[in-house]
Design a protein around this nucleic acid. Structure first.
Length: 187
DNA sequence: TGCCTGATGTTCT
DNA sequence: GAACATCAGGCAC
């Protein structure tokens, strides 16, 4: 597991994960992507699934850092989160967008649209990387889906805004993205 | 180019 | 029974 993530708050971890790599084994090949956009969610935050306490669905969010929390939304889409913070604290970082760096052809086969449309949204990247409820609770230190922490980005290359697509706690600036990256969803 | 809407399952009230 | 951390296609302009 990733002990470094256990020491960070949701917002710190969301910023920390920018620029880090995800490696997914798909069709017997490795697909690597860089995280370019994230959002932080915490149990003290009304927009978070963990806000109303531990439930069957949010159990993973209260578990160990470095695990994958997948949820299903709007009847058709999956979104994936990285659990962060100490065990027993419900916090996670939503991966909103990634940039493919290798295995792009594998991703392109799974997504009808090409270019930045491959992975510039939370549900799109889940489709592209073949993530569904079966991956919920997966340890991101293990194949077939691994998180590789890289050096933190410089402050000046990271932008902070309010989050997207939520109805509560809209004014909290817990969305982070890499400035100037084409794969970042609507700015 | 940009708004509007349909699709559709899980969770919680 | 309503809400929902979404996306893509269709239609109007």
């Amino acid at each position: 597991m990733h002990s470094e993530l256990a020491k960070l708050s949701a917002s710190e971890a969301a910023r920390r994960l920018l620029g880090c790599r995800l490696v997914r084994q798909l069709d017997g090949q490795a697909v690597a992507v860089i995280i370019v956009e994230t959002e932080a969610y915490d149990q003290t935050d009304a927009a978070s699934h963990s806000y109303n306490g531990r439930t069957q669905r949010t159990e993973v969010m209260f578990g160990q850092a470095g695990y994958l929390y997948v949820y299903f939304t709007y009847g058709m889409h999956y979104c994936c989160n990285v659990v962060v913070g100490s065990e027993g604290h419900g916090a996670a970082v939503l991966i909103r967008a990634v940039q493919p760096i290798s295995g792009t052809d594998i991703i392109a086969r799974r997504r009808p649209r090409g270019g930045v449309e491959l992975t510039n949204g939370p549900a799109k990247l889940c489709q592209a990387l073949g993530i569904d409820m079966r991956m919920n609770g997966h340890d991101l230190a293990q194949p077939p889906f691994e998180l590789v922490l890289t050096a933190p980005l410089a402050n000046e290359s990271v932008a902070t805004t309010t989050r997207i697509g939520i109805s509560k706690a809209k004014d909290v600036k817990w969305r982070y993205y890499i400035k100037g990256n084409d794969y970042v969803s609507g700015i």
